[in-house]
Simulated assay, not measured.
Amino acid sequence: MPLAVKDFTWEETEKMVFITVPLKGVKANKVDILSSEEYIKVNYPPYFFETFLFAPVDDTVSSAQIGNGAVVFQLLKNEPTLWGQLHAVNTGDKDFMRKKRDEAIQRNQERAESERKEKAEKKRESEKYTLNEMMRLEEQERGRINDVKEEEKKKAMDELERWKEEQRQAAEKERQRILEEEMAKEAARREELKKQKKRKGKNIFEESSGGNPTREVGKIEVKFTPRVFPTPVRESQTPLEEEWLRKQAEAQKIIEVEDADLTEEEKNPIFMRDKGNAFFKSGNYQAAINAFTHAIRYSPKMPSLYSNRAACHLKIRNFFKAIEDCSKAMDLLHPPVPQNADSRCKALVRRGTAFCELELYVEGLQDYEAALKINPNNEQLKQDADKMRSIIQSSKG
């Protein structure tokens, strides 16, 4: 049975009430306190203290401190006045006492529930604020990354535009040079025709009138040089064919590079090209690139070396290098003649593929359409070109 504590002390002022309850050696963590506006209970087995206050107090600002072997209550009165006694007048009434206990318990439960809800609401607000802050920071980071991507894309596009302008200027210079050569050849041909007309205008019988004998009949043998291009004369493009043959001859010339560590085979660009092709077939694309680069060192005007190296760059997704190599191959494959049609078609398709991988579908479509002009019966090229047109149309839409 609990033992009621009788040796408590209390003091009062007009505004405050101070109650000191001794703990009698009981540890502070075993003390249970229940308080309300009109009721105070301290339970620390086997001891028990309770009091029904003479008048209500403000329980929200009152306090209870445990320390130095006692519990000290500091209670703020609702109405400033001197009570004269601590206990309520009806302390002996059991119904009154039971009612006040129940009210105190209910009030504490309501207060605990209110505090729990308030704490949960604060926790939700804190989590909501934290989540919003995280989302804001993530949005800032996404914006920063997008800005970096756009800047890199802009730089790449500017670089590509500069490169295309350089290629256009180079092509224009080459076209002007070819045009000047054609004009010079045409002028020379006309001059030769004039000379032939003058020679034909002379009377071959004028000399015989001076008493000289008539020339004897003879036979002239005419031998024709076999043509490399089996093109009919009416369709012949002699200047372009001659220029292509000259470029082929230049491509076969091997640059002498002094390197004692290389064998004679390693100094042969044809051997290194075949070796690069073997590496490509086996899937060793970096070794193939090294082989083609080594071959270009000895034969920088062989277009197949650049075109094959571009295919390797496509495999390892070096798209800008693939575009550069294909463009170099196209320069070396000029002028366009039937003998280099297949090589030009391959270079155009590879460059168009690199453009598409960079999402530059308009440039890629231009190369594919140029390849289709060379090989109009290639169904795969037609299908790929149609796909690009669909992508371009959808992006415009």
Rank of each mutant, 00 (worst) to 15 (best):
E242C: 15
Q248Y: 09
R297L: 08
A291Q: 05
H294T: 08
L305A: 08
A278Y: 09
M302P: 01
D274W: 11
E235K: 14
F271Y: 12
N284E: 08
R227W: 13
N268S: 00
E250Y: 01
S307Q: 01
R246F: 09
E235H: 13
M302C: 07
K281F: 04
T225R: 11
I270V: 10
K247Y: 12
L240A: 14
R297N: 15
Y285I: 12
N277Q: 07
P239W: 13
S236Y: 13
D274G: 06
I270L: 02
D274T: 05
P226N: 08
Q237S: 11
A260S: 08
S307C: 10
F229P: 00
N268P: 03
K275M: 11
L262K: 15
Y306A: 01
A295P: 01
L305I: 08
F279N: 04
N277V: 05
I254K: 10
K267L: 06
E264Y: 10
P232K: 12
E243P: 00
A278P: 06
S307P: 04
P239E: 14
R234F: 15
H294S: 11
N268W: 00
I270S: 01
K247R: 12
K301Y: 08
A249T: 03
F229C: 07
A249V: 06
E242N: 15
N284G: 03
R273G: 03
P300F: 01
A249L: 10
H294Y: 09
Q248D: 07
V222W: 14
S299F: 02
M272W: 02
E241G: 11
K253E: 10
